[in-house]
């Protein structure tokens, strides 16, 4: 007696074969979601007590990163400026702007402004700004075009694979130390060479290789060891 129709043979073969693709697709979806801004918040501006525009202050006025982030060269933490730093200028300018009322209120009352952290690494990661700055990693290599961000967002995923991309081969990203804070730095090209100690470089890899030596970077094996970041 025949219970199943003979087409069942084909259907069962197709589903067994198709299951491989279905499972693969599930993995692909999971991996994509995990890397998407839905999880990493990359490119998503966070609400802040005052709509501070880096674009206006950096590109518009030409204020250096270090005017506010004073400890970035010497400390693990770049430093969020106290309200007084805002008031250095805003006690004189835009003194009646409604947008700045939270800042003035904080200055009057002495209560801190509660900014929402944008670039937040997990707590099991040890990260130090100063070492990156002093080895020639530019601000915008990790933070993106901050001078073109009217509202702050994190540029990178901040995921481990992103950290490792540079730790595996830092020469892909290094630039001369004096260019670290230059938001419009351009990688060396044949039309725009980058000068280091009087020597012009026309491609990133040869520049990076020499900077690795000049700034005495640890070997890739060293900076890729688990305990470099997870200590």
């Amino acid at each position: 007696m025949q219970i199943f129709h003979r087409s069942t043979n084909t259907i069962s073969r197709a589903t067994i074969f198709g299951a491989v693709f279905v499972v693969a697709a599930l993995f692909w979806v999971a991996a994509t979601v995990q890397r998407s801004p839905y999880v990493t918040y990359a490119g998503v501006a966070r609400p802040q007590p005052a709509p501070f525009s880096h674009q206006h202050h950096v590109a518009g006025l030409g204020i250096d990163c270090r005017y506010c982030h004073t400890s970035v060269e010497t400390s693990s933490f770049a430093g969020i400026p106290p309200t007084k730093t805002c008031m250095n200028c805003h006690s004189q300018i835009w003194t009646n702007a409604a947008m700045l009322e939270p800042v003035r209120e904080s200055y009057r009352s002495g209560k801190s402004l509660v900014w929402n952290r944008v670039n937040d690494l997990p707590d099991f990661v040890y990260f130090n700004h100063s070492i990156h700055i002093n080895k020639g990693v530019g601000c915008n290599t990790c933070h993106g075009p901050v001078d073109r961000m009217p509202l702050m967002y994190n540029y990178a995923s901040l995921q481990m694979e992103w950290c490792l991309d540079c730790h595996r081969a830092p020469e892909k990203y290094l630039r001369p130390r004096e260019q670290v804070f230059n938001m419009r730095y351009q990688e060396p090209s044949s039309s725009q060479p980058v000068l280091v100690d009087g020597q012009p470089y026309t491609d990133q890899l040869s520049l990076g290789m020499d900077l690795v030596k000049k700034y005495k970077l640890r070997t890739a094996t060293d900076i890729m060891s688990c305990s470099t970041c997870h200590r």
Partner: peptide, 18 residues
């Protein structure tokens, strides 16, 4: 123009007298 954060770009004259 307009970005003080941008450093002046000095054209290298030649490798030696840069």
């Amino acid at each position: 123009p307009g970005s003080g954060a941008t450093l002046p770009v000095v054209e290298p004259k030649s490798a030696n007298s840069a």
